[in-house]
């Protein structure tokens, strides 16, 4: 298991449960590190069932959003599934404006998302 600084990673019924350390994902150095850590989940640890739980995240810039898109593309290339839960309303609105709500599987709660992995 790798050591991460921007995320924590747990396991829930075969799903990698990822939470974010920072309440505001805005610092460019931290975002680069976050991107590397998210990518390592797929390329190093070979995880391909991933749930990103944004509970506690108040703000993220579009640079951070770009890292999620890169992760999603990697998970898809690895024939895996990525889901997102716990978005505060304002961040969810950003997904809607940019139509990324069509790209990502957004779920209200962690339990809802875990259940959806079983389908």
């Amino acid at each position: 298991m790798s050591t991460y600084r921007r995320i924590t990673v747990g396991d829930e019924g075969g799903v990698s449960l990822v939470r974010f350390v920072d309440k505001k994902i805005v610092d460019s150095g931290s975002i680069e590190q976050l991107g590397e850590e998210l990518n390592a989940l797929v390329t190093v640890e070979k995880r391909n069932m991933i749930l990103l739980n944004f509970d506690g995240v108040d703000f993220m810039s579009s640079a951070a959003l770009n890292k999620l898109i890169t992760l999603n593309n990697k998970v898809k290339a690895a024939a895996g599934r990525l889901k997102i839960c716990g978005l505060r309303a304002e961040i969810k609105e950003v997904f809607t404006i940019t139509r990324l709500d069509r790209v990502f599987d957004l779920r209200k709660s962690e339990a809802d998302a875990i259940e959806a992995f079983k389908l």
Binding site: S62, L65, N66, K67, I69, T70, N72, N73, V94, I97, T98, R99, L100, R102, V103
Partner: peptide
């Protein structure tokens, strides 16, 4: 373009 990791700043 929707799954490309760039180009959203001006629109946002």
């Amino acid at each position: 373009r929707v799954d490309q990791p760039r180009g959203r700043g001006v629109m946002l």
